[in-house]
């Protein structure tokens, strides 16, 4: 089985700071990989590099075997195959929920508006937000906005879904509804890479947990192994600090 995503020796430098330092990561089809690690360990930067929102400073990233960090590759074509959901939702405030979702299908994938609308409404119904279709994002709760953002990324049928701290900006009682949706996606077989601070969630949904430290994957494996019996002292220290919370 070839990997959907393959990162080899990825390096990213911001000024003096080396954020990613020769990072390697392969993600197989239908696999869910959780990236954990302290703030600044490079989780978000890795996701932004995969989506070509940041240029890598060395190394290669392949998507379905195609080299996407080649500067001759059209980034717009690559991004059409990858969905990303941000911590701050980043919904378009001037568009209704429905128009947020159908913007890319209609403008990028040249789908018929009526057809895109129907698909969007069906997805909204599935996440229980059908009655919010014509509402504007500022009338929705944080959890509802984040679920709409996930649907907006899904409607393009991406090969890979990147989730960047999608519950970090949410009130605790709203986290559950977003995590439920992600659990459903896993059941549907969506290949996902998620950066998260929610260890319980990483344990429930991830096939593999990767602990990032100083721009590399220091330790990885099944959740119970990495989270319960970490080998590396840095991992143990990180998890110990989280433990009381």
């Amino acid at each position: 089985m070839t990997a959907v995503l393959s990162c080899q020796g990825v390096r990213k430098v911001f000024g003096e700071a080396v954020v990613l330092d020769g990072l390697d990561l392969d993600v197989a089809e239908h696999e869910v990989v959780a990236l954990i690690g302290a703030s600044g360990s490079g989780k978000s930067t890795l996701l932004r590099c995969v989506n070509l929102l940041e240029e890598v400073d060395d190394g290669m990233i392949h998507l379905d075997g195609a080299h996407i960090t080649d500067p001759r590759v059209n980034p717009d074509r690559v991004r059409r195959k990858i969905g990303i959901v941000f911590q701050a939702y980043n919904l378009f405030p001037h568009l209704s929920v429905l128009d947020n979702i159908t913007l890319a299908p209609v403008r990028v994938h040249k789908r018929r508006p009526a057809e895109a609308r129907e698909q969007a409404l069906a997805l909204l119904a599935r996440i229980g937000l059908a009655e919010k279709a014509s509402a504007y994002p500022d009338r929705l709760s944080g959890g509802q906005q984040q679920r709409v953002a996930i649907v907006r990324a899904l409607v393009n049928s991406p090969r890979l879904l990147l989730l960047d701290e999608v519950t970090s900006a949410l009130d605790p009682e709203l986290v559950g509804e977003v995590l439920d949706l992600i659990r459903d996606l896993k059941a549907d077989g969506m290949t996902m890479v998620l950066a998260t601070h929610e260890m319980t969630f990483a344990r429930q949904v991830a096939d593999r947990v990767c602990f990032l430290d100083a721009g590399r994957i220091l330790e990885q494996g099944p959740p119970e192994q990495v989270l319960d019996n970490p080998v590396e002292p840095r991992t143990q220290q990180f998890l110990r600090r989280l433990a009381p919370a």
Binding site: N51, L53, P75, D76, R77, R79, R80, I82, G83, I84, F86, A88, N90, L91, F92, P93, H94, L103, A104, R107, V108, H109, R152, A153, N156
Partner: peptide, 25 residues
Amino acid sequence: PSQVAAARSLGLTYRQAMRHVVLPQ
């Protein structure tokens, strides 16, 4: 800038992001 990032991540070109996301706002 996060609005442009969101638009570009959906596959919109620079011009489409300008036309449909940045300019209306």
